[in-house]
């Protein structure tokens, strides 16, 4: 039982950390960023070379990874994304192309694979099973991240402006909110989160050019069924997908787990086109009417 909960939480953390960056960008700027996986790759590469080779402490490696990815985000924004605001279909194609290019660059850089980083902290033994303390930490980080983002989005000025932009762009602009500055800030935030996710998972996986594409399926599906609210949507989407995948994988194998997860996504989108965000919004509207 504990094992099942652990597998579910592992899956939840994986999907959340991969999807949160993509969801934030989608919700606030209307861009589908298929290159999010490559931001994760950049984060992982920074950590692999700084920590795996130069021996820099892991924490510093992660901070640097976030900084480097944030800069990469700005570059991507100024070069490509600035023309693609509020064009989910076009941005998907463009960023997919960027993703392929970055993947090849990553392959040229890493060849067979980047240097390995050992996952810190060892294991915790409960009963007859051992659990990776590092993985438990990642699960904790994913929850803390949701908490922090909640505080930022709901209790800060920036968050207020961001939510306004998300809801009604033109009116927010007319109220004096600098919408283009908002866009850049959001993309910087999302890419830094991507770098964070990629760096955090680097010790548990092999980092090759295709590292980012490992996360992309889950991130994209979670983003779509989450809808435009990056917090509520991603949280619920990651939760549902994690339940489905971990449960099915446990009883029927990884292959069925994958298929089940994708089928559930198709059903959800068919039933609730606005995703979970849309569902929650309608529920809130109905509650307010009473």
């Amino acid at each position: 039982m504990l094992q099942m909960i652990y597998n579910f939480l592992e899956s939840f953390a994986y999907i959340s950390l991969a999807a949160i960056g993509m969801s934030i960008v989608y919700g606030i700027t209307g861009i589908t960023n298929m290159a999010q996986g490559e931001f994760m790759l950049i984060g992982a590469l920074v950590v692999s070379y700084l920590c795996g080779v130069a021996g820099i402490p892991f924490i510093i490696g992660i901070v640097l990874a976030m900084a480097v990815t944030a800069i990469a985000g700005i570059i991507l924004d100024r070069l490509v994304l600035v023309r693609l605001y509020n064009r989910p279909g076009d941005s998907l194609v463009c960023t997919y192309g960027v993703s392929i290019a970055l993947m090849q660059v990553g392959t040229i850089l890493t060849g067979v694979g980047a240097p390995a980083v050992q996952s810190p902290f060892g294991t915790l033994v409960v009963g007859n099973r051992s659990y990776s303390v590092y993985k438990i930490l990642l699960i904790a980080i994913s929850f803390i991240l949701f908490g922090l983002l909640y505080v930022v989005f709901n209790k800060s000025r920036f968050g207020l402006h961001a939510r306004a932009t998300m809801e009604k762009r033109e009116i927010a602009a007319s109220l004096g909110i600098n919408v283009s500055k908002m866009n850049i800030l959001v993309i910087v935030l999302a890419s830094a989160l991507g770098g964070l996710g990629g760096a955090l998972y680097a010790p548990t996986m092999s980092v090759t050019g295709t590292y980012g594409s490992n996360f992309l399926t889950h991130a994209f599906v979670a983003m779509i069924i989450g809808g435009s609210n990056p917090l509520v949507g991603t949280l619920m989407a990651a939760g549902l997908l994690a339940v489905v995948e971990s449960f099915l994988s446990l009883y029927f194998g990884a292959f069925i787990g994958r298929i089940g997860m994708l089928l559930v996504a198709i059903v959800i989108i068919r039933l609730i086109p606005g995703g979970f965000s849309g569902l929650v919004e309608r529920m809130m509207v109905r509650l307010r009417k009473r």
Binding site: S11, N214, S249, F255
Partner: peptide, 11 residues
């Protein structure tokens, strides 16, 4: 297991 799976927790 499919060739692109990287999370083996359930397995």
């Amino acid at each position: 297991i499919p060739l692109d799976v990287t999370q083996y927790g359930s397995t």
